[in-house]
Amino acid sequence: MSRLGPEIHPLLTEDVVKALHGRKVWTVGDFVKVDTQQIIKIARLNFREVRAVKNYLLKKFSATPVNGFDFYKNVLKNTAIIPTGIKGVDQLLNGGLFTGNIYELCGPPASGKTHFVLTLIKNVILNMDQNVHIFDTKNDFSAVKMKQMLKNCDEDRRTKSLGKIIVNRCYTRYDLINSLYEIKNDLENNMKLRLIIVDSLPGVILNSNDHLTNNLYLNHIANIMRYIATEHHVAFLVTNLITTWTDGGFKTQQETSETITCGKYWSSVPNTRLRIEKMENSGGCKLSVLRSDTLNQKVNSCADIVPTEDGFL
């Protein structure tokens, strides 16, 4: 809560807050910035009281520095690796999806992004005792299809597994942001969740060509995602689209160029960006790492995966 109110500190009584608001000291930030002498005059508190309130506010609202070693220990203690269950991909990602990271899977249309997502969900709900949350922006998630993919399990296990998938259909960017904040609140109330999937971010972003506001909302989405990822040790997987453009006309035919949608701003958000593409001749798919903060890309940079009815292998 950044606005000053009587519930923040006992010295900030309603009268004091009213006086401060009257002089346009609205928020905690304003209070800390304004000169102490001036606040003494406005709020009719003594010097020591103002200092005490300022120190209290600074302590409560500022970010706290953490010792590097403690931070490292904390990360080691809380990070989990979620295996994708696809052998080649797990090798590529050093074991699977690391919590605290945002992964992006981008690819041309109909290249197997949603199929990859379904495979990942299937393997996680079968092998881990965790819920999976999926944001579906264009009704691509089919529960019947999921059930078919689980056809090798017995009835009991299938029902239990399907109950672990939480589907959230978001058609607008506002829906998505509100839902992410709702998840944050639930996580603070001890909900257990390790993996959140956003199937198709362009589905809520490309409906406007005002790039300025698009970036604003992408920023909001990135902020809350990063917060959830690091504070609550959750892994994110976002799918994104690659569009192919040809420059020039028929006579001046030039090479085609590829663009990853959602703009340059978004490209810096995911910690690891993966690319999926269909192989023309073999019928399989290739998954490669385009950019990564954490992976050593020189060791291995691509994996071949085979699509089957029950998911990728």
Binding site: F141, V144, G163, N168, R169, S179, E182
Partner: peptide, 18 residues
């Protein structure tokens, strides 16, 4: 304005899809 869309489990979804 602040309301998030309703969530459901795949099990419930499966029923309505069927």
């Amino acid at each position: 304005l602040k309301r998030a869309p309703k969530r459901c489990t795949a099990l419930e979804l499966c029923e309505s899809e069927s």
